[in-house]
Computed example of a mutant assay.
Amino acid sequence: MSSSPGIRARENVDMMYISIETAIALASVLGNVLVVLVVCVNRALRDTTFSFIVSLAVADIAVGVLVIPLAIIISLGFNTEFYTCLFLSCLLLIITQSSILSLLAIAIDRYLRVKIPIRYNTIVTQGRAYVAVCLCWILSFLTGLVPMIGWNNREAQGNLSTSSQIVCEFTTVMRMDYMVYFNFFGWVVVPLTIMITLYAEIFRVIRQQLNRRAEATCDGERYYRKELRLAKSLALVVFLFAVCWLPIHIMNCIDFFCPKCDIPKSAMYVGIFMSHVNSALNPMVYAFRIKRFRMTLVQITRRCMLCKPAEPTPCPNRSPALTKKVDANL
């Protein structure tokens, strides 16, 4: 009887965890489905950058549809075979890797756009953008499935037969040296460092070009000002990714380098929440920071949710040239 209050408290924490995760999943799926819908509806947004943004949105949808439900299931500690639990845990890593690689692809795309603006359209074609998106996902699967080929905790579980069942928990099947050295240092810290360097260079080049007012034409100044606005929005997406994902990775490092250090379960839950809520934040950044995206989103909301007929907008039809120039609509 003395243990019942503790058990009840843990059940309350678990129910709160499940409720919050469910809300995050719904927000993530709804918001990112709208991102994909906006890009499909507005032809002016179908450029190479938004191809990578759609890839990122698909990864965020997968967070709501797959990652969060799997995280809830794993947190409940159900019984299953070792490799089944390991595969479910690897799926969580695959989605994370696809997100950060999509962000890296966006940073490289924007860097090329300001560094070589004249040759950009001939080098970065839509076809090559699709190939880059496919490579991001293939690489995500390859890196995320590394534990399946041996870098896992099977040996720590003793002599398990193929039919033996374990309590499925992430730390039970996943080795912390893989999570820290390979996943965090290799596939989070390194890409984030590259992205920070690229955006710093993007802002430097844009500022340099804007300072040459005497030499620059009005069109050139307008081009770089629009690039600056979009670069700030995308850099904010990277910043939010870092803020949301670093806590859980830092706790993994503490657990690995200081096994005696006790990390409260509530702190782990907060870290997991932050990593998942990042998927729901990106659509908000696009809606508040990118004008053309926001206008299309308002039109979709009026047409579909409020059952209002679409109002004619001069932007897509006023001038064919505007539909060809993505930057004019951003």
Score class of each variant (00 low, 15 high):
residue 266 S to E: 14
residue 274 M to E: 12
residue 243 V to N: 03
residue 248 I to C: 13
residue 245 W to V: 09
residue 274 M to S: 02
residue 269 Y to L: 00
residue 256 F to T: 06
residue 269 Y to N: 04
residue 273 F to D: 08
residue 266 S to W: 12
residue 273 F to A: 05
residue 260 K to R: 02
residue 268 M to F: 14
residue 265 K to H: 09
residue 270 V to F: 01
residue 257 F to P: 08
residue 264 P to H: 06
residue 263 I to A: 03
residue 242 A to P: 13
residue 250 I to K: 06
residue 251 M to Y: 10
residue 256 F to W: 12
residue 268 M to L: 15
residue 262 D to T: 15
residue 245 W to I: 11
residue 248 I to V: 15
residue 255 D to E: 11
residue 251 M to K: 05
residue 272 I to H: 09
residue 262 D to V: 06
residue 255 D to P: 00
residue 264 P to F: 06
residue 242 A to Y: 14
residue 252 N to D: 09
residue 266 S to L: 15
residue 259 P to I: 02
residue 268 M to W: 15
residue 268 M to G: 15
residue 250 I to N: 11
residue 271 G to W: 02
residue 267 A to C: 09
residue 245 W to R: 08
residue 267 A to R: 00
residue 245 W to C: 10
residue 266 S to G: 06
residue 261 C to D: 03
residue 266 S to I: 01
residue 271 G to C: 12
residue 267 A to H: 07
residue 243 V to F: 13
residue 255 D to I: 14
residue 253 C to R: 00
residue 273 F to V: 03
residue 267 A to M: 02
residue 252 N to S: 08
residue 261 C to V: 08
residue 248 I to W: 00
residue 247 P to D: 00
residue 241 F to K: 00
residue 271 G to N: 10
residue 263 I to M: 07
residue 268 M to D: 14
residue 269 Y to V: 04
residue 255 D to L: 13
residue 267 A to Q: 00
residue 256 F to V: 04
residue 248 I to K: 08
residue 269 Y to D: 00
residue 263 I to V: 12
residue 271 G to A: 05
residue 251 M to C: 10
residue 261 C to M: 13
residue 263 I to N: 01
residue 273 F to W: 08
residue 242 A to N: 12
residue 257 F to C: 05
residue 250 I to Y: 03
residue 268 M to N: 15
residue 257 F to D: 00
residue 253 C to K: 02
residue 250 I to F: 06
residue 270 V to N: 07
residue 242 A to F: 15
residue 247 P to M: 05
residue 274 M to C: 11
residue 272 I to R: 06
residue 274 M to T: 10
residue 243 V to C: 09
residue 272 I to Q: 12
residue 263 I to K: 01
residue 259 P to E: 03
residue 269 Y to M: 10
residue 271 G to P: 07
residue 259 P to M: 07
residue 270 V to W: 09
residue 260 K to W: 13
residue 255 D to Y: 12
residue 274 M to N: 03
residue 258 C to L: 14
residue 266 S to N: 05
residue 270 V to M: 06
residue 268 M to R: 11
residue 241 F to M: 05
residue 261 C to W: 02
residue 263 I to F: 06
residue 266 S to K: 10
residue 272 I to D: 12
residue 257 F to A: 07
residue 246 L to V: 14
residue 242 A to V: 15
residue 249 H to Q: 13
residue 264 P to I: 03
residue 253 C to D: 05
residue 271 G to R: 08
residue 261 C to F: 14
residue 256 F to R: 05
residue 273 F to Y: 06
residue 265 K to S: 12
residue 252 N to H: 04
residue 263 I to D: 03
residue 273 F to K: 02
residue 241 F to N: 08
residue 247 P to L: 02
residue 246 L to S: 11
residue 274 M to I: 04
residue 265 K to V: 15
residue 247 P to A: 11
residue 244 C to H: 00
residue 267 A to Y: 04
residue 247 P to R: 04
residue 268 M to I: 13
residue 245 W to T: 11
residue 254 I to Q: 01
residue 272 I to K: 09
residue 274 M to F: 11
residue 252 N to W: 02
residue 255 D to A: 14
residue 243 V to H: 06
residue 265 K to F: 13
residue 247 P to H: 03
residue 250 I to G: 01
residue 267 A to F: 07
residue 264 P to S: 05
residue 242 A to S: 14
